[in-house]
């Protein structure tokens, strides 16, 4: 555990907290993409299968990871519940039309081609890494469709982007401090994911400066 990894994880927790805070205080999930939340749920539930096999008390790190994994899974399920049941009437279904089946199919194909070992567990793990790298796209697509970027929604995306950026620093740090197998799959996908956020921030800041609606290319 290094400061970048811990900082990244904390930003991830803050982003989830912000999301739930927005929904609960405004009694609305307007501007939020249910499809992105569903993709995160799929990502977490295919990646954290090791919860069934790992003893949480094996080490301090596995204990920390177990707590965080349960937190991500449960908060993700709760967010979907809020959007689909309690505040269903505020959900912007008309604009949230990104076809996530293509993202899921593409991630599945890539995972079948690129994985570290030929096991169900490894292929699902690779699938989750590929899918996570594009999971924010429906949310960005929705922002583009409505043109409105609420402060709290942008804070949510900023935190996620910050979390990904800190993970890159974490990988650089680990590359030089640990002598273990390089994780090209996670690094590659993580970098793509961070670039998507960077691209969003660029256009977000540009649209703020010009006082115009957000336009993504």
């Amino acid at each position: 555990m290094n400061i970048f990894r811990l900082g990244g994880d904390m930003l991830h927790v803050v982003s989830i907290f912000l999301l739930l805070l927005k929904i609960q205080t405004s009694h609305s999930c307007a501007g939020l993409s249910l499809k992105t939340q569903i993709l995160y749920m799929v990502v977490f539930s295919t990646r954290y299968l090791d919860l069934f096999f790992t003893k949480p008390w094996h080490s301090a790190l596995t204990f920390y990871n177990t707590i965080m994994k349960i937190l991500f899974l449960s908060s993700s399920a709760y967010t979907i519940y809020l959007m689909q049941k309690r505040y269903k009437h505020t959900y912007d279904k008309v604009h949230d039309t990104f076809r996530i089946q293509y993202l899921i199919a593409a991630a599945a194909v890539l995972a079948l081609i690129f994985h570290l070992r030929l096991t169900v567990f490894e292929i699902l793990w690779a699938f989750s890494v590929f899918l996570e790298s594009v999971a924010i796209l429906p949310q960005l697509f929705l922002l583009q469709e409505t043109g409105e970027v609420e402060n709290i929604t942008s804070h949510y995306i900023f935190c996620l982007g910050g979390y990904r950026t800190l993970y890159i620093f974490n990988w650089v740090w680990r590359y030089f401090t640990e002598h273990r197998r390089n994780q090209w799959l996670a690094w590659g996908c993580g970098t793509v994911q961070t670039l998507i956020y960077a691209d969003f921030f660029y256009y977000y800041i540009l649209s703020r400066k010009q006082g115009k609606k957000l336009r993504l290319p």
């Binding site: 990894r5 994880d9 991830h12 090791d50 790190l61 596995t62 990871n65 965080m68 994994k69 991500f72 570290l116 793990w125 890494v129 993970y167 974490n170 990988w171 680990r174 640990e178 002598h179 273990r180 197998r181 390089n182 994780q183 799959l185 996670a186 690094w187």
Partner: peptide, 10 residues
């Protein structure tokens, strides 16, 4: 064999 670094991340 050495373990993968990414497996102990989130």
């Amino acid at each position: 064999p050495p373990e993968d670094t990414a497996k102990d991340e989130l």
